[in-house]
């Protein structure tokens, strides 16, 4: 219940209507959106029960390794109702053609593979919010100071998922495990996304805001 309440509203991409469509424009829009989503997601993390009790250093470490997984999971969940399209924002939906134009076709196809998995499972909002919190708590940072505290956060969230499934999805006793088993693909997709945006950063043609840059550098 606390995670459902903590779930942030979607934000808008607001691509500049005066600039003609191009790869640079699309990537600028995505990077700007990601930067603003990150601010929202840091606020969200503070509402995960137990997260604010971690040391500030450990909170930072988890976000530095897990931020892209959180961004991607949010895009995935927003895209469940559509076919072969990614809802980066309510006003910024990418189809195959737009993905090609922006040079993110491979990346978006991997994200669509996740969408397909969750669609097949008919993931609900409760499962999505817990899975997102689990992906943060389980982001495998190598810099954790208090490993036991992070483990107990993982246990609490894992327990919440199991309790929910045993109450709501009695038809499939393995459903919690099935959801957890989608996390490797999320990890792989996030790594690919970070790599892609790091190379865009190196090209230097797309303006990026400071928080996005800071977190890209943390993962580089």
């Amino acid at each position: 219940s606390l995670l459902l309440v903590a779930e942030p509203e979607s934000i808008f991409a607001m691509p500049d209507p005066t600039v003609p469509d191009s790869d640079i424009k699309a990537l600028t829009t995505l990077c700007d959106l990601a930067d603003r989503e990150l601010v929202v997601n840091i606020g969200w993390a503070k509402h995960i029960p137990g997260f604010p009790l971690l040391s500030l250093a450990d909170q930072m470490s988890l976000l530095q390794s897990g931020w892209m997984e959180i961004l991607i999971l949010r895009v995935v969940f927003r895209s469940l109702a559509l076919e072969d399209k990614l809802v980066y924002a309510e006003d910024y939906i990418m189809d195959e053609e737009q993905s090609k134009l922006a040079g993110v076709l491979d990346l978006n196809n991997t994200i669509l593979q996740l969408v397909k998995k969750y669609k097949a499972m008919r993931i609900d909002k409760e499962e999505f919010v817990v899975l997102k919190a689990i992906s943060l708590a389980n982001s495998d940072s190598m810099q954790i100071e208090d490993v036991d505290a992070v483990q107990s956060l993982q246990d609490v969230l894992h327990g919440a998922l199991q309790d929910y499934e045993s109450a709501q999805h009695t038809e499939d006793p393995r459903r919690a495990g099935k959801l957890i088993m989608t996390l490797p693909l999320l990890r792989q997709t996030a790594a690919r996304a970070v790599q892609h945006f790091c190379s865009i950063k190196q090209d230097g043609r797309v303006p990026m805001h400071k928080l996005f840059l800071e977190l890209l550098e943390a993962r580089a």
């Binding site: 601010v39 606020g43 500030l56 250093a57 930072m60 976000l63 530095q64 928080l211 943390a218």
Partner: peptide
């Protein structure tokens, strides 16, 4: 950690 000033600041803000 000094490199991650914005993240640090956002986590410290009590929102």
């Amino acid at each position: 950690k000094e490199k991650h000033k914005i993240l640090h600041r956002l986590l410290q803000n009590s929102t």
